[in-house]
Write a protein that binds this DNA or RNA. Structure first.
Length: 203
DNA sequence: GTTCTAGAAC
DNA sequence: GTTCTAGAAC
């Protein structure tokens, strides 16, 4: 049997198409248990350091309750989401009470288990490498926690258009502070290192 | 989500 | 020639 036939049989078996435990998309569930990453926990949630931080400070706050994504949310989760945001604000305050942070969710996250991003707005990190990284935190692909909570209170659900959201990741690179456009990520990264993004004013 | 790397872009 | 992006990963 040729190797190409073996490959076809392997894929048709479907044994590499399932996303069970151990698949990369479930990595957050194991990161929640990693003492190296865990920075805080209580009865409702666990907070960890993002393994590949996209800014000086980048934390994730995850509910202990298994919630796969934004589409699973109902108004009954409003209390929990407010708790996650409050935890995130505490972490940010403790990390640096002068830096500006945002608290929000990716519209279409790559990894399972709902996770609130707590990220400082300097975006100065060697782990921020691609246009997708940039646009996922600086376009409407990043949805503020407060906006999610308001949608749940008003409509008992969160409306996400997957195709529209993913198209946001393809948008041209633009500075989140002064809106200047760039053609390459290295040029943009060099530019933003000159901005100091504090809670009180941007320069 | 990341790693790797071919080849596009400069 | 080097930098940079974008798609496959069995």
């Amino acid at each position: 049997m040729t190797s190409s036939v073996k490959r076809k049989l392997a894929s048709s078996n479907g044994d590499n198409s399932k996303k069970g435990p151990g698949h990369w998309s479930q990595a957050l569930l194991t990161s929640m248990e990693d003492p190296e990453l865990k920075i805080d926990e209580d009865e409702k949630c666990v907070s960890i350091k993002d393994k590949y931080p996209k800014a000086k400070y980048h934390f994730l706050v995850l509910p202990r309750e298994k919630i796969s994504n934004l589409k699973s949310l109902k108004s009954e989760h409003v209390g929990l989401l407010k708790h996650l945001q409050l935890k995130g604000e505490e972490l940010a305050e403790k990390a640096d009470d002068n830096l500006l942070f945002r608290y929000g969710y990716h519209a279409v996250p790559s990894m399972g288990q709902l996770h609130l991003h707590v990220i400082s707005q300097d975006f100065n990190s060697p782990c921020l490498k691609t246009k997708k990284h940039w646009n996922s935190f600086t376009t409407e692909y990043f949805i503020d926690s407060s906006k999610i909570i308001k949608q749940l209170e008003k409509h008992d659900m969160v409306e996400i258009n997957t195709a529209d959201s993913e198209s946001l990741l393809k948008k041209d690179l633009k500075c989140h502070v002064c809106q200047k456009q760039f053609t390459t990520l290295p040029a943009l990264k060099s530019h933003i290192s000159l901005h100091i993004v504090t809670r009180h004013k941007n320069t």
